[in-house]
Computed example of a mutant assay.
Amino acid sequence: LIVCTHDLAVTLTQRPHHLIEYLARMKKRVTFLHLRHLYEQPRDKGSPYIRKKVKIGGVEVRAIFAPFPSPLLNIFRGLCVLLHVLLFDKHRYRVGINQGDPWIGFVFYILRAIGVIERYVYEDLDYNPGGHKNWLFKRITEIAEYYSIKVSDLVICVSLNLLRLRNRWRINRVIYSPNGVHLSLFSRAIKKKAHPPTILYIGSITEYFGLDIAISVLPSLLKKIPEIRLIIAGSGYYLDDLKRIINKYPEIKGHIIFLGRIPHEKIPDLMAESDIGLAIFPPSELMHYACPIKIFEYMAAGLSIITTRGTEAARILKKYSVGLIINYSVENLKEAILKLFMDGCLYKRFSMNSLKFSVKHDWNKIFHDEFKEIESLYLEYVLIHKRTVS
């Protein structure tokens, strides 16, 4: 049993989507629940998850209707999941996996106590308190996250920064399982098409991803590289704010392309016409612990990458030498972009390293290792249970 509290038909392609594809290929029998909030959102009409229930291989994906995603109503998400499982699901499960929601940890605790699941795994995808600016909501979320993790049998961290944090909490069993990339899909991006100097951003459009300074740097870049362009592919609530910034600089309007949300399978074609992948973040706790999937997709496409200090992304860039790490400022971003476009040898080295080391982050290998650990956890439980009975 796997529970994700995002609507899979709304969010951009993330770890849960890749996990479902992997489990379907491996012919695993899984029930995957995701939440559909009771308000209008732009959903991907082409997504199979638009339906209330869909079967993908051996994976049955069901949408559960839930309240608005307000901090005041977070606890009701868990109640919706619990009621659905108790009233409409007659199965018993070996393992229950919580995909990183601190507000449904109590659900898995109860399901384990009454025998619906036998082991509880917390997949640690983000530092959830880091997403709150209100100190009270942040503190409440910290407590919820702590206990959701503390009562689990296994914690799977997607970043080493998260792993270090959870180890300080003295969690019994914690492993590292980073995000990855669909290598066979992104291999299409290696064969480059003719294009002007291009900076690319792919992902959600929010204040956490540094798009304001990416736009603000363009006027000075145009003086050095007149053909340069910035492509932004994604959607989010911050789009109107970005357009207001663009209106301050009339000269850049023809050099910024907003593509909106594009199908994941078309991203490699876009990367084949790009040179630099952006992953810049203003300083925040949320991004310090986050492991952006875009980093590995940029790498698989052979792009050079720019990211900011003090983040998990910076650790990855430093480890593999696939790009430049900067302080979060317009001036530092300008210098990094010019350096990559002007220094062909440096760019080529980063690009070759990106291709070389992206193979370490193939989703198939990552999920294979992760489920090997989960199977080991369950086998240990079976052995202990047998000894107790005998």
Rank of each mutant, 00 (worst) to 15 (best):
S284Y: 06
V107T: 01
H385T: 12
A113S: 09
I190E: 10
L286D: 12
K365A: 12
C291G: 03
H368D: 02
V151C: 05
I267Y: 12
R261D: 00
D212K: 00
F76W: 12
K386I: 10
L211A: 11
V81N: 09
D275T: 09
F106C: 05
P102F: 01
A279D: 11
P282M: 01
H255I: 14
L218V: 14
K248W: 09
L162V: 14
S358R: 07
D89V: 15
A301N: 09
T308P: 14
L35D: 04
L163N: 01
V116S: 03
D240L: 10
L239Q: 03
I97A: 01
I110D: 04
R164C: 00
F88V: 04
E297C: 11
F371K: 04
Y347D: 07
P67C: 02
K339H: 10
I384Y: 05
E227K: 15
S274A: 15
I213E: 14
R92K: 13
H132E: 13
L111D: 01
V155P: 07
Y328W: 05
L218M: 08
D44A: 10
N128V: 10
I156H: 08
T13R: 15
G105K: 04
V330M: 00
P71N: 06
R173G: 01
H18I: 02
V181R: 07
I325W: 09
V121N: 07
I232W: 13
G131Y: 00
H34Q: 04
K294W: 04
A314N: 08
S284L: 04
E227G: 00
L221C: 15
R229P: 00
I295A: 07
F371V: 00
H34C: 13
T5R: 07
P283G: 00
G254F: 02
S390K: 14
D124V: 10
N247L: 11
F68E: 06
V30M: 12
E145T: 10
V382G: 08
G344C: 06
S304A: 15
H288G: 00
E375N: 12
S321F: 14
H91F: 09
Y237C: 04
R170T: 01
F281G: 11
L230I: 09
I245A: 13
I374N: 02
G236N: 03
N134R: 07
C291D: 14
Y249H: 09
P196C: 05
I202R: 13
D343V: 03
C345I: 11
E380N: 15
K53A: 08
S220I: 03
E335F: 02
D269V: 08
A301F: 03
I110E: 07
M352R: 05
N74M: 08
V95T: 02
A290F: 15
I97C: 01
L242V: 06
V174Q: 05
Y320E: 13
E40N: 14
A313S: 13
R168W: 15
G131K: 00
S274W: 08
G96P: 04
Y298R: 12
F65G: 00
S159W: 13
I257Y: 07
P219D: 02
I316H: 03
T141K: 05
V174H: 09
G344F: 05
Y120E: 06
I246T: 10
E273W: 01
Y109M: 01
V382Y: 05
I267M: 08
I2T: 06
P292Y: 08
R119C: 08
F137V: 11
V30L: 06
